[in-house]
Design a binder for these strands. Structure first.
Lengths: 249, 249
DNA sequence: CGTGTTATTGACCAACATCAAACTTAGTGG
DNA sequence: CCACTAAGTTTGATGTTGGTCAATAACACG
């Protein structure tokens, strides 16, 4: 699993992420490790890419927590997805040139910028990598569907429980958890904007989940006390994440 | 635009669809026209593919109206997308082998089944077609995001208006409209299941839109009386559909 | 003609939003 | 190390969008 090739930590992040959703051979790992990229630090609440832009490079999240969102007429905000280290949240700009939404850093974040040209070359020469990237965007679609089902048809309680399960498993597949504990560095207003709820209601439901001893939270960290209970509360079935390899700690 | 090659009507549908979202050269058109497929008729309300299956062929919608949905514990249903002739709603099964949702025919439908192996060959030999398919799945993601923003943050009225705008434009880009009139062969309960609303409320809002003279409806047909008014009501901005070529009737 | 969806209407209700204020926390600069 | 500030969290009171239930009317289809 650990590539024999020496690759920088940010290359490793990308490789680990892709290995969590598909099989890579040594050739592909080598090609990924050779991908040109340069690091960039981004402040909290700064956009990585903004709606309307047509980026010529994509950003790989190396450290931090990132989200995709859109501001609506009328002042509302909808968050569409969260991204962890290893994700390339604007990979799609390779084919959809003008961004129909923005991507922003929810914490101080380090990204690695990869020129589109380099990605195009990589995809042309390595069909397995092309398939991996495509597959990654398809998993993202599956996550959108899960969110749609939640916002459209589930109670606030189920939506929140579902999101906690999802972020926990995704973080775990990347080796970012410690036992049942994981970092969720987002505020309650942000949670609300992702789940179609008000911050006030998010707060009340979180209290309820704590009262029922499904979770505890200490600052930015969530501790899952009752994994099965939380899954039940969120009607959670992990198969949509299509995770192939999960260290399970 | 009209391919010089003689291709069957169902091949033409696929080619027309892909040309609505990207540029194809004569080589690609020829390759698409040679794609092996066989026709299959599907009854109203019959699943084309069901959750849990791992299909080895994908279906191209040739005629009819199809949706992607999931049944939830508790009896609810969420519809994730609608598909028109030219769409391959389960193209994703090429990379996500087990279906995390189902696809069903909302009207009597004719589909053309294409073996995955043939699609894999096509993609391997024709990078432009591979890009087109990937792009198509990315546009689908963009549509999911638009729905998420609607269900999460917009009123019932805006959601319904937005959906009408979306289906109208997609149908128009495929040459399936007559002026401002288009076929929307779905029931109010189905509309509700796609927008996270009850059938009763859908009914009331549709009446409101008719009262305001934004639309009229005759049976399964919707007539847009006031396109700009409808767009305004739905806070609709078409750019997320990434339509490149639109006959505009 | 029945018979089974679909559309429509009305009465009532609940989940969640909104508003406003108090409290907590983290960060900042003197 | 301590005010000071800004942001986030918590609480309570009140409001509203849209859900649920139930009944009737319109259709479509065999």
């Amino acid at each position: 699993m650990t590539p024999a090739i020496d690759a920088s930590p940010h290359h490793q992040r990308l490789i680990r992420k892709l290995e969590s959703i598909c099989d890579l051979g040594p050739t592909e790992v080598r090609a990924l490790a050779a991908l040109p990229m340069y690091l960039k630090d981004v402040a909290e609440n700064a956009d990585l890419v903004s709606q309307g832009e047509a980026p010529v490079e994509s950003c790989l999240v190396v450290e931090g927590f990132v989200c995709r969102y859109q501001l609506l007429k009328g002042g509302g905000r909808q968050i569409f997805s969260f991204h962890l280290p290893g994700d390339i949240p604007d990979l799609q700009s390779l084919h959809l040139h003008v961004m129909d939404h923005s991507i922003t850093a929810l914490t101080p974040t380090r990204v690695a910028m990869i020129p589109h040209a380099a990605l195009q070359d990589l995809i042309r020469d390595h069909p397995v990598v092309a398939a991996a990237f495509w597959r990654d965007t398809l998993v993202e679609s599956a996550v959108y569907r899960a969110w749609l089902a939640g916002i459209g048809r589930r109670t606030a309680r189920a939506r929140i429980a579902h999101l906690l399960c999802e972020v926990y498993l995704r973080a775990r597949s990347l080796g970012l958890t410690r036992g049942r504990r994981f970092d969720l560095p987002i505020t309650q207003p942000e949670l609300g904007d992702s789940l179609g709820l008000s911050a006030v209601h998010v707060n009340r439901v979180l209290q309820e989940l704590r009262r029922e001893e499904l979770i505890t939270s200490e600052g930015r960290y969530i501790n899952i006390l009752d994994w099965h209970g939380l899954k039940r509360a969120g009607e959670f079935d992990a198969s949509y994440l299509h995770i192939m390899r999960d260290p399970a700690d």
